[in-house]
Design a protein around this nucleic acid. Sequence first.
DNA 1: TTTGTCTGTTACAAAAATGGTTACATATCA
DNA 2: TGATATGTAACCATTTTTGTAACAGACAAA
Lengths: 141, 141
Amino acid sequence: MNTRFAVATHILTFLHTQDGRPATSELVASSVSTNPTLIRRLLSELAKAGLTTSQMGAGGGALLARPGNRITLLDVHRALDAEGTIFPLHQEPNPQCPVGRHINGVLRRRLSDVEKAMEAELARTTIADMAQDVANANRQG
Amino acid sequence: MNTRFAVATHILTFLHTQDGRPATSELVASSVSTNPTLIRRLLSELAKAGLTTSQMGAGGGALLARPGNRITLLDVHRALDAEGTIFPLHQEPNPQCPVGRHINGVLRRRLSDVEKAMEAELARTTIADMAQDVANANRQG
DNA sequence: TTTGTCTGTTACAAAAATGGTTACATATCA
DNA sequence: TGATATGTAACCATTTTTGTAACAGACAAA
């Protein structure tokens, strides 16, 4: 299982609920139920993508780099995964075979439409939406 | 990298081009550039999903279980992957935390829309389409 | 300026998933 | 009966993901 996307979304949603107060990797880790190093590794990738910033030193921690309504799940996906990793192609099918010679080009074209559809849907949810959903769930149950 | 989907699609496209002649796992493996056991493992899953049949014994091999224009890439995806495996959730976030308590339910709902969009797009391509694309590529160079 | 806190990163181990190889019982055709 | 091919299991190597420990450097607070 690759839960990096789910954990990264959890982190960002958590940061949103902190409302400007820096959150330490230890605090975030306790919400996710994992260890601080894993959180810091993911935060490092999210920071490289411009989604979060961090303050070192006492009283420091992680913050959203911009308002949660301007961070989408597509941003999260792109921060973590290179393109074409949802349905990776197999390498070097037999070039002597009429099918093997062209299957990857054909697949790439068809699957790029699939990824586009997926990305369009990912882009429709923001971290602010996530936080709102979580708040609603807390109010109701 | 998980290339099972790509390889399975390759297999089915190859079977389509065989036009009713049973293909041995060794023949298919040579097109994919892998080993016959891997092919047989995938064929076994495809057969369970009703997409292929196999004939044991001399002169045997694998066949499409129905016409290629009635097998979509969505069928392939469903034959290989359980639901919710594209973006797996992390298990047991902290139930003491307002975010941890509800993040997975919220994520599941939002991501199910994403998978639906993806599946709708996968359903638009059939194995016959794939074979046609490959044939066109061969005609053109 | 000193002390304590927290990040960023590395190293290494553990666990899980994927793919490759071998082997063999069983089914089927000729 | 003999040759062929599937289905499946066992086992290993490789890669990816996750967990754990360690530590230099940045920063705040006293």
